[in-house]
Design a protein around this nucleic acid. Sequence first.
DNA 1: ATGAAAGCGCTAACAA
DNA 2: TTGTTAGCGCTTTCAT
Lengths: 341, 341
Amino acid sequence: MGDKITSLQVAELAGVSQSAVSRVFTPGASVSAKTREKVRKAANELGYRPNVLARAMVSGKSRIIGLVVAYLENQFYPEAIEKLSNLLQEHGYHVLIFMATKTSGNVDEVLEEILDYQVDGIVMASVAMTSNISSRCQQAGIPIVLFNRSQDMDGITSVTTDNYAGGRRVAEFLVAGGHRKISYIAGWEGASTQRDREAGFRAALQEAHQQVYSRAIGDFHTESARAAARDLFDRPADDRPDAVFVANDHMALAVMDVLRFELGLSVPGDVSVVGFDDVPPAAWPAYDLTTLRQRSNLMVEETVNALLNYINDPDATVPRKIAIDGPLIVRGSAKLPEGYE
Amino acid sequence: MGDKITSLQVAELAGVSQSAVSRVFTPGASVSAKTREKVRKAANELGYRPNVLARAMVSGKSRIIGLVVAYLENQFYPEAIEKLSNLLQEHGYHVLIFMATKTSGNVDEVLEEILDYQVDGIVMASVAMTSNISSRCQQAGIPIVLFNRSQDMDGITSVTTDNYAGGRRVAEFLVAGGHRKISYIAGWEGASTQRDREAGFRAALQEAHQQVYSRAIGDFHTESARAAARDLFDRPADDRPDAVFVANDHMALAVMDVLRFELGLSVPGDVSVVGFDDVPPAAWPAYDLTTLRQRSNLMVEETVNALLNYINDPDATVPRKIAIDGPLIVRGSAKLPEGYE
DNA sequence: ATGAAAGCGCTAACAA
DNA sequence: TTGTTAGCGCTTTCAT
């Protein structure tokens, strides 16, 4: 008992050939209404469902998308994963998760594992890529898209927020708010997101004839961010920034806690804080964080599009660097510019 | 170019049979050192790796575990998923994600999809089970374990915190804190976690000759929780609870925001708040939430154990309801009992 | 429109 | 220890 039902058993019950059964379950195959009916009936009776793995073997399409992720602690990612998985599900694909954390330290190792599953595509979220990996996939003919990371090297598709523009927007907002000592808490310096946000931020500051007042590295992690905040703010009032742009919300929330509860500073009274991402807690009244929103819905849609386009027509698809514009969500953690409506 | 390397090609290059190659990649098969060496060399040269799907087909073991989740918004789950995935990876398994949300509304539908992938096991997180599903899996011989949900019906393995004991512990703490008007904000009433937490809570209250002062339903969602908080607390001081147990942290944080920022109440000055889970934000200084911790590490370990035990020896494995004790993490959101150290 | 037959890449008897 | 041989459950020519 409990044995798997095969198409052959259905065929026998329906009194048709095994390939007829296969055709009934293959969209766009030619079967007569009568045959289809007989097969459907037999299949229902037996509770038959095609074996995806067998289908994958012969067709070469597994309908599995590999997802590499390393940083679920940052709420931006669970949210994105949920959307990604949902959208792919709607297209008949499913997500096989690979954690690129401690255990299987290096990404290359993880990637080999993914390839073993004959995935139809790969999404790498918040993970850097070596050109080695890239060529490995290229040669395997597997599309890969970088989510929330970009790569200088060409030939690899990526979907990000327009981090440069976002950084600019934050700087402009802070400058307009009348701040004169604007500091920056950086994310992990290996990340393109960090780099681009900072570059845009600095560029706009420069245009306003300002520069970054001080800088510390938070590495995208809570504890490092706290240390960075102490580093920049635990000093006399006249040597203290009056505003800080933190490279993502996950850090910005921790920074706000340090400012308020450790250093007794008022936000935005003494210091304005702006983050990046707009994760759910940023909207909580206790933080009410002004932040540059990443439009994760759009990002996910673009990711899935890129993947499916390639799968459906590998030759007609060229790698693109997709950068989505993100709006500044103005809340209460930063002083408003004069006359801001 | 870019074609997949098969064991046959390796065999030819190594000058051995195809099955020799297979054996080299099968742990515990008998191969001579010489053959192994030849094969290894050829495999490296060609960049060969076994096709997991083909292996799955013939062996009947896919090394894929299906995971059903519905509620990534609650930080407890991303954390758990990360740990689960990591631990399974260490055992050579990988997680195929299925969202049980809006899109594929009903769990039964999702489950059929999972079965199509010939998974070796299923973890259902925060998802209720119909007996229908259960028997479907039983008959397919696929182990299924409920994570953070339990089921009255027998024959199904579940891993939870001891929610009843947890609920008791919270009540005892609140009573010891001198509270006399203790209320409860419930989670989704279909959830076993909700039921058990409330039952334990009420039992301990009763033993202290108290009862629940008032009750509202938060459904485990932020917005409903906010409404529930208003419902219970937006009233004259003498008809207001002096403490509230909220069925999980995700809601408790939202409740604290309403109390403080909408109703102008002080926590714990006017109201003590206790949650359940101990998600990361509970420890943030802005909330400093007293809460009953779910030991997700242990829960995940037990889940993986249960799964692997069954896979390795289906006949010797009996369904168990595993309930893990969780400690009360005392922070600042609730008044401390007299003389509490 | 349908059936027969040939594999997809691999593991697992079975011989040798 | 090794090679040979059968499949795993399915899709896909190729005839009919």
